[in-house]
């Protein structure tokens, strides 16, 4: 238990520093346009990298994950609220696991 606290402090530090340092550093300098474009793509590339292929292994079976993911894609395409996208995907996976 006590030792676990050290683990968490370690994790907290290595998580906070990469959040903090660029914030301080890049808030005052003007970047060349290449680097601006590079940084502007980060939201999309990071989300894509986080998403795939990990989503396939997030449930009991690849099939149910694909089904849940597809439902999320359809709802997100129609700009449905984030909460509904998430809960419908959970519901879809549940349904798949129950029926199949």
């Amino acid at each position: 238990m006590n030792r676990l606290i050290f683990l968490i402090i370690g994790m907290a530090l290595v998580t906070y520093l990469p959040r903090l340092l660029p914030m301080l550093l890049f808030s005052s300098i003007e970047l060349p346009s290449f680097w601006k474009r590079f940084l502007s793509f980060i939201p999309y590339t990071a989300l894509s990298a986080l998403l795939f292929p990990e989503i396939l292994f997030s449930t009991e079976s690849i099939e149910s994950a694909i089904f849940g993911g597809s439902i999320a894609v359809i709802l997100a395409y129609y700009n449905v609220k984030l909460f509904l996208v998430v809960s419908s995907a959970i519901g879809a996976v549940l349904l798949w696991e129950l029926i199949i």
Binding site: E54, I55, A72, L82, V85, V86, A89, I90, V93
Partner: peptide, 10 residues
């Protein structure tokens, strides 16, 4: 388990 990824999709 799908929740995190559905959020990324959204």
């Amino acid at each position: 388990g799908i929740a995190l990824y559905a959020m990324f999709i959204g």
